[in-house]
Design a protein around this nucleic acid. Structure first.
Lengths: 347, 347
DNA sequence: TCGCGCATGAGGTACGTGCCTCATGACTTT
DNA sequence: AAAGTCATGAGGCACGTACCTCATGCGCGA
C-alpha cells in the first residue's frame, strides 16, 4: 500500500537513445560545444524536454574534477550586518565544500561602486561560476553585471536588489513588507498615537528606500494618529546616527517611537542611553547584531527586524547550484523571511 | 592576492596509503564489513582522523545506485499545520530526488501511538535510512525508536522532541522560547495589565507544555499586572476550542488577551467573530495556516508564532544526509527560527 | 606437515557526466 | 579527382565510492 513507483531519473544515455544520436552529440549540445547542426541539436533538446532530463549536478562536478566556484562580494566597513554575512559565508564554507562548492569572499569598500566593478571585471567563467554581490544602485555596477553575464559569470544580488540588471537572482527579504511590519508593530505599541521619528542610512540605498515607503504607506493606511518625523539620514555611521538621535530627543520631548531602518545602531543605542530615556520610547531597528542584541537585552530597542544572514547565504548557494544546472532561468529559492526579534526569542 | 590554497579533499585512496593498507580494507572498515583485525581497523581509523577524511556522500550514493531513503510520519487529522508539513514534504520531494534522496511519507492517525509504532516497526535499514516522526511522548514510541535504531534505522523527531529516546536529532523550534515570546508580546500589547486566557491542545504534548511553561515564566517575571486564566484544553479540535473560547468570553467581559498555544484556531476565530468582540482583545496563536492567515487579515488574531514547515523539512533532509555520513553523531543543523507574523509580513 | 580459516591485497565493474582522441562519411572547394 | 571541412559516432579515461571475486599468505590445530 505504501509502495511507490520510483522512476529512474533520465540520463544522458537515455537522451541519446531517444534522440537517435550518440552520447558525444548529446554532450556537445549539453555543454554548448560546437560541431552540431541546428536540426540535430533540436532533436536533442526535444528528447531532453520529453524525458524531463536534468543533468546530475553531483556527477557532473565529480566528472570535471572542479568545484563550483561562488564568489561573494561583501561590503567592508563598520556595518556589523555585513560582518554577519561574511561570517555566514565562512561558516558555510566547509559544508559547501563537501558538496563540491567552493566559496570565496572579497570584502570591498562599502558603497564604492568602482571597487566592486573592478572586482566583477576580473572574474572569468573559468574561475568563477557565480558572483554574489551586495550593492547600491549605480549605473557602472549594472553595466559590470551585464558584462559578467556575457562572459558566462552568473551574478546574483544579495540584500538589495538591482532589478534593471542582468542579475540572475535576488536573495533577500521583501523590504517593503519589512517597512509595513515595522509600521504595524509601532501602531500597536502606540495605541494613542504620537510622534515617531524615522532614521535611514541613505535613501539612495534601494532596500532603505523600500522600507521607508512601506512604513509610510502602512502607517498612513492604518494608524492615522501617528505623525512621522523625518526621515533623517545617518549614513549608516555610528557617530552621525548618534548625533541625529540626540537632536531628535532634544527637539521632541514627546517622541513616542523611533524606527531606524538603516544601520548605525551603535549610535542609536548610545544616544538613547545618554539621554536617560532608553525604554521610554518604542524603538524598532534592523538586523540582529551584537549591538542590537545588547539593545534588546537592555530594553533600549523593543524589536529588531532581521534578515537571517545564514539563511541568505544558504539560499544563495542553493541558487548558484540551480543556475549551474540551468543557466537560462532564474532559480527558485526558498524566500528569506523577515525575522522579528524581541528580547525573548533571540537566537 | 585573492589566491587561495585549495586542499583537495582526502579520498579513500589517501586513507589507504596513509594507513598502509589496501583500498579493500579501508572499504571494509568504512562500511562495517567483517574481516578486519581490530589493530588494522584502528590504523585505518587513525588515518581517517589524521586526514580529516569524510566520505563523499554524492559519490557514495552514486556508486551504490540507491537513493537515500527518508520516511516521514506525519499525523493525519484536522490539524492544518500537519497538512502544511505534509505539503512541504511533497514540495521538497523532486528537489531532494535530484540529490539522490528519496522522500516518502505516511500519514498516521494523530496521537495514535500504536499506529506510529507499527509503522516504525515495519522499517528496515535496507528500505529506510532515516525516519522522521512527529509524536507525543509515549513509552511505546520511545521503545519503537530504540528498536529502529538498533536495526540501523536512524530516527529524528520533528516539531515535538522525545529527549529520552534514541532519536538522533530534533528538528523544531525552542518551544519554551516561543512561550516567552508570546508573553513578551502580550505584555507590551497590554501595558495596563489585565486578564489573559491561555488555551492549549493537550498538556500531554511536550511542545504545548513547554510553551505554557515559558509563557507563565516570562509573564510572571516581567508583567506582574497580567493575570492568567487557564490553561484550558481544547484538544486541538475546532468545536471544542470554539466552545471553550465562547465560555471564556462570556465569563470574562474584561478579558484583555488570549493565547492559544495549540491548534484548533478555526474554532478560536469562529468564536471570536460570533461574540462580536473580534479585534477588541489581543490574540496570539500558533502556526501560519489558512485559518490563522485569515484571522490575521480580519484582525481576529494579532500575532501568529510560527515554525516554518518548509524550513523544518529542509533541515530534516539535511540532517538525514549528515547522519548517513556519520551515523555515530548528532548532525548539526541550522536552528529553526520562531517566525512572528502580523498582518503585514505574511509570507 | 597438511589443511583449514581468517586477514588482506589486487583488481575489476558500476554509477552519471565531462572531456578527450580518432575514425568515418558527406559535402565542398580547387 | 584530390584535398579539405564539417557533423557525427565510437570509445576511452577520469572523478570517488560501493561491492564483488579471486588470490595469497599467515597462524593454528590435528
Amino acid at each position: 500500500m505504501n509502495e511507490e513507483i520510483v522512476k529512474r531519473r533520465a540520463t544522458v544515455h537515455d537522451v541519446a537513445r531517444a534522440a537517435g544520436v550518440s552520447l558525444a552529440t548529446v554532450d556537445r549540445v549539453l555543454n554548448g560545444r560546437p560541431g552540431v547542426r541546428a536540426v540535430t541539436a533540436e532533436k536533442v533538446e526535444q528528447a531532453i524536454a520529453q524525458l524531463g532530463f536534468s543533468r546530475d549536478l553531483n556527477a557532473s562536478l565529480m566528472a570535471r574534477a572542479r568545484d563550483l566556484n561562488v564568489v561573494f562580494f561583501i561590503p567592508d566597513g563598520t556595518n556589523e550586518f555585513m560582518d554577519s554575512l561574511a561570517e555566514a559565508v565562512q561558516r558555510r564554507s566547509p559544508l559547501a565544500l563537501a558538496d563540491r562548492i567552493h566559496l570565496s569572499m572579497r570584502r570591498v569598500k562599502a558603497l564604492d561602486a568602482a571597487g566592486l566593478v573592478s572586482g566583477l571585471n576580473q572574474l572569468d567563467a573559468h574561475s568563477c561560476d557565480c558572483a554574489v554581490i551586495v550593492s547600491s544602485d549605480e549605473p557602472e555596477v549594472l553595466a559590470a553585471i551585464d558584462a559578467a553575464h556575457r562572459r558566462g559569470v552568473a551574478v546574483m544580488t544579495l540584500v538589495s536588489d538591482l532589478p534593471g540588471s542582468a542579475r540572475r537572482n535576488f536573495i533577500g527579504i521583501d523590504n517593503g513588507a519589512a517597512g509595513r511590519t515595522a509600521a504595524s508593530l509601532m501602531g500597536r505599541f502606540l495605541p494613542q498615537g504620537g510622534k515617531v521619528a524615522v532614521v535611514a542610512g541613505s535613501l539612495h540605498l534601494r532596500d532603505h528606500a523600500e522600507r521607508l515607503e512601506g512604513f509610510r504607506a502602512a502607517l498612513g493606511a492604518e494608524f492615522g494618529a501617528i505623525e512621522i518625523i523625518g526621515p533623517l539620514e545617518g549614513h549608516d555611521e555610528r557617530t552621525e546616527t548618534a548625533a541625529i538621535i540626540a537632536r531628535l530627543l532634544a527637539d521632541h520631548a514627546d517622541l513616542g517611537g523611533l524606527y531606524n531602518l538603516g544601520a548605525g545602531n551603535a549610535g542609536l543605542v548610545a544616544a538613547l542611553e545618554a539621554s536617560g530615556r532608553s525604554g521610554d520610547l518604542r524603538v524598532i531597528a534592523h538586523e540582529l547584531t551584537p549591538t542590537t542584541r545588547a539593545g534588546l537585552r537592555s530594553g533600549a530597542i523593543d524589536v529588531v527586524l532581521d534578515q537571517n544572514p545564514d539563511g541568505e547565504i544558504r539560499e544563495a548557494i542553493a541558487a548558484a547550484r540551480a543556475l549551474a544546472l540551468d543557466a537560462s532561468r532564474t532559480a527558485a529559492t526558498d524566500p528569506i523571511e523577515i525575522g522579528i526579534f524581541l528580547r525573548d526569542n533571540l537566537r
